[in-house]
């Protein structure tokens, strides 16, 4: 049996002034697989993340849903949080109840709360079917190609090469230097361009 924890964020008053967060948490507690649901002022804050970590340990959670802002903002944050508490970071989902609920339905509080509940239910349904994922690795060839040997290409090539990596500096012309080497003195110090 899965042990899902749901964490509803107030985002100060951003979410809590529109969505009834207590009600969302209470309802989420009854969703299949959910063994723990709570709300807190700022889930992304240090104490908020600590609250998640503590709940994972004490409630022996194996999956987590955070309902707060857009996953485009804090998904990486919370993936790290659950990982630091020993859960695979991909056994985590977010419900976007700020950008796509509280903020856009500020004048329709009656329907914002049921919508937030629906969004949390979807996230719980999704996290239920999450599997642990491991990042694969790809090797890196430590050799750079610089296309175009004007001032930009020469500078980039020199900086990379000074770090000790091999660089191929390529130009279609018979010489390096690009436009820069055609110039006479350069502003504002009037030093020579070659």
């Amino acid at each position: 049996m899965k042990r899902i924890g749901v964490f509803i964020c107030h985002c100060g008053t951003n979410i809590a002034s529109v969505v009834d967060v207590k009600k969302v948490a209470a309802t989420a507690g009854s969703f299949p697989g959910v063994v723990y649901a709570t709300d807190y002022q700022y889930m992304c804050s240090d104490p908020g993340q600590e609250l998640i970590r503590k709940a994972i340990k004490e409630q022996r959670l194996d999956r987590v849903v955070v309902a707060s802002c857009s996953p485009r903002l804090h998904e990486p944050t919370f993936r790290k949080t659950v990982e630091s508490a020993g859960i695979n970071p991909y056994l985590f989902e977010m419900a976007n109840i700020r950008e796509q609920c509280a903020w856009v339905h500020a004048r329709d509080k009656d329907r914002a709360t049921p919508k937030a509940i629906d969004l949390v239910r979807a996230a719980v349904a999704k996290v239920n079917r999450d599997g642990p994922l491991q990042a694969a690795t790809i090797p890196i060839t430590k050799r750079a190609l610089v296309i175009g040997a004007g001032i930009a290409g020469m500078q980039a090539a020199l900086d990379i090469a000074d770090t000790g990596y091999e660089v191929v500096l390529l130009d279609r012309e018979p010489t390096i230097g690009g436009n820069m080497v055609k110039l006479d003195k350069t502003f504002p110090t009037l030093d020579c361009s070659a």
């Binding site: 857009s70 485009r72 950008e99 796509q100 903020w103 856009v104 339905h105 500020a106 329907r111």
Partner: peptide
């Protein structure tokens, strides 16, 4: 949709 939220554009909740 996130941007709509940031700009507090209001749309129906359905």
């Amino acid at each position: 949709a996130d941007l709509a939220g940031l700009n507090r554009l209001q749309y129906p909740a359905n």
